[in-house]
């Protein structure tokens, strides 16, 4: 999926690097060097996502974000910043950001996160009672899952993991994303918790026959096929 991305970053070199990295994933990018330019740019163009630096001269990232949200522009915004404290993250999310990522970030991880944000916007808005990804169906309200209409008995963590994979079926979910969303951790454990649970989930999903619907992207994360 090719995206049209607005990069708001005062460090020109860094902005160029980001643009080049995004170009590797076939995304189109526009660079705005400060908050005022970014505001002027955003109202004129249809962007799929915004990568926003937090600290900029003239208008800082959070102020820019508040203006954007007040203008009812609902584009997904990912704050990319050197400020990684928990309190700073909360500030960013409260200001209206969709994701908060600490520099530096692996381009693969950034790409995965942008895709997840754009996909989340494409949902119909209300989370329906059941969600489908290929032959897998989950009910977030009933905490039940089925493959080929056969119920799969999943413990809590495995169920949450599958739900997240189904929500983002067709896109990559990185380990940090899964740890944030499934485990609600703001740190990365040193053991392979995610891998262990993916292994368990795979076993459960393939117990009743059928091939493995989860693919591993080594060094990046996991993806459930659509």
């Amino acid at each position: 999926m090719s995206l049209n991305i607005l990069i708001v970053e005062d460090d020109a070199e860094l902005a160029e690097t980001l643009a080049a990295q995004m170009a590797d994933f076939d995304h189109d990018t526009t660079i705005a060097g400060n908050g005022h330019k970014a505001l002027a740019t955003i109202v004129n163009g249809a962007f799929d996502a915004v990568i926003l630096d937090r600290v900029m001269p003239l208008m800082d990232g959070l102020t820019f974000l508040q203006h954007v949200r007040q203008a009812n522009i609902n584009v997904p915004v990912l704050i990319l910043t050197a400020f990684g404290k928990a309190s700073q993250k909360v500030e960013g999310l409260e200001a209206g950001a969709d994701d908060y990522v600490v520099k530096p970030i692996d381009p693969l991880e950034l790409n995965a996160r942008l895709h997840a944000l754009v996909r989340a916007r494409q949902w119909s808005g209300k989370e329906s009672d059941t969600m489908r990804a290929g032959d897998i169906m989950v009910s977030p309200t009933k905490f039940r899952a089925w493959r080929n209409d056969i119920a799969i008995d999943l413990p809590g963590t495995e169920f949450k993991l599958l739900l997240e994979l189904v929500r983002h079926a067709g896109s990559v979910l990185t380990r940090p994303m899964l740890l944030e969303r499934v485990w609600n951790y703001d740190f990365e454990p040193t053991t392979n918790i995610v891998d262990t649970y993916i292994k368990r989930l795979r076993k459960k999903l393939t117990e009743g026959g059928g091939d493995d619907p989860i693919s591993t992207l080594r060094g990046v994360g996991y993806m459930l096929r659509k």
Partner: peptide, 20 residues
């Protein structure tokens, strides 16, 4: 930590690409 993380992340990205 910040300054070293930037080149390290780049290095890691290259390694991941090479690995593929």
């Amino acid at each position: 930590s910040h300054e070293l993380r930037t080149p390290l992340t780049r290095l890691r990205g290259r390694l991941a690409l090479l690995h593929k």
